[in-house]
Design a protein around this nucleic acid. Structure first.
Lengths: 245, 245
DNA sequence: TTCTGTGGTCAATGGCGTTGTCATAAGGTG
DNA sequence: CACCTTATGACAACGCCATTGACCACAGAA
């Protein structure tokens, strides 16, 4: 049947046959990805992105999408790469390594949290697409210019990215919950945890107020700061004037 | 219709009507949760846990499950709480605060990674159930006994838990991928990234070998170590003999 | 023994991703 | 300009999913 689309990369060589859809729209990879992101933006509850919904949003039959993407997984990876690209475009390249890492981390985190559905599907994937590759190159550069040798740069880059994506996935999941579940989760800290008996749960009781305050916000900035503190200490060891030998 | 099950807590008071199912099994909250975990354990591809599959695994009609859980979300929270309980049961309570945090963190991480499907669904949820409450109490205790005042204990506890759950969600997602996607993601680092042109991607090329090595393992232990380093420094500030005033 | 209402079953609804098949117009060719 | 090829859009169908309403068997209280 060969419904599977051609090689995603070298499709540029051949000119596509741009037959318009019934409603007059001309489909393309980019249009589909953009529409998918638009769908995900306007939220629309739990499962904003479905092939069928995307089809009607495009003014095309849902099955047309399979001419451009092998399956939903393929589509999601393309959307993820587009988001990485947008994040990359918005980050500055000046300042010290610590400041740059903080900036790019919070930027990436914010992008994913703003698009919870993609984040959940894509945070742990390797897209192998151009924007991701550029992002890896840029990220590694920060670590190496800070003074880390290749093996430590790779290791700490990995830790940094997964830390950011992990928090992003977590916070995105909280954002993607159906409203009533989200409300219940948020209310738990004042409704359930703050009311426990101090004799059976002394520490929860003692921390009830700050707990309720911290639990409804993201712990990412604080955790990142601690991580960067640790990184700074390690860097001092690496670049210290010969302590041994 | 009132299919919604009674209050999950005080169901103990009333004796349940234990009518056996067609195939002879007697249903209960525990049996359903255990069977769900068993289903999730044996993997079975992408969506191991569906109400229908769970029904047949139980030898009961799928709709029976709705007599015990309001919906799948409710069931997932119960499964998550059971996993938290199992984790809690396996953790030791001796040693210094740093050692205890490392131990409980890696334990929790391992439990979730071993049950990727639940992890993905539950990592960001607040179950409000007994085991979770015990876990919060235990976790807070470690921070307060280390010397953190209530507000810092709450904040850093939150950071620690979300750090762990975030990595757990990420690593679990990688484990939950259909085999061919997982293989493609793993191969990317040697097949795609290691082959890039050193002139256009100098840093990736320079780090290709350590990158390929680190990317196929979890970055959690290393990231946790750095986080704990940072935490230790903060604790020193807090407990230091009056530096100011 | 009778009565009550819990809880197991059946059937149906409306959604989903995906695919087999067909039809048609775009683009190259002369 | 007409022809042919084939990329690509549309349709219909399949099998899966979660959830619900109606029915009724039977366990336990009286």
């Amino acid at each position: 049947m060969d419904r599977t689309p051609p090689q995603p990369e070298r499709a540029i060589a051949r000119k596509r046959r741009r037959r318009p859809t019934k409603s007059g729209v001309v489909l393309s990879h980019e249009l589909i990805v953009d529409t998918a992101i638009r769908l995900l933006n306007q939220g629309g509850g739990d499962d904003a992105l479905t092939v069928r919904r995307l089809g009607t949003a495009l003014g095309a039959d849902p099955s047309s999408i399979y001419r451009y993407f092998r399956d939903t997984d393929d589509l999601v990876l393309a959307v993820a790469d587009e988001l990485i690209g947008r994040t990359l475009a918005g980050t500055r390249r000046d300042g010290g390594w610590r400041e740059r890492l903080r900036h790019v981390g919070e930027h990436l985190h914010a992008t994913y949290v703003a698009h919870p559905k993609v984040a959940l599907l894509a945070a742990s994937r390797v897209t192998r697409r151009p924007n991701e590759i550029r992002a890896v190159e840029t990220g590694l550069a920060i670590f190496r210019e800070a003074g880390f040798p290749p093996d430590l740069a790779a290791r700490h880059y990995h830790q940094f990215v997964d830390l950011t994506l992990g928090f992003a996935a977590l916070d995105a999941a909280a954002n993607a919950l159906p409203p009533e579940a989200a409300a219940a989760d948020r209310a738990a800290w004042t409704a359930t945890y703050a009311r426990l008996d101090p004799r059976t749960h002394p520490h929860i009781s003692a921390c009830a107020v700050p707990l309720a305050k911290t639990m409804v916000t993201s712990a990412y900035p604080g955790a990142l700061a601690l991580f960067l503190d640790g990184l700074e200490a390690r860097l001092a060891e690496v670049t210290a004037p010969g302590t041994g030998r």
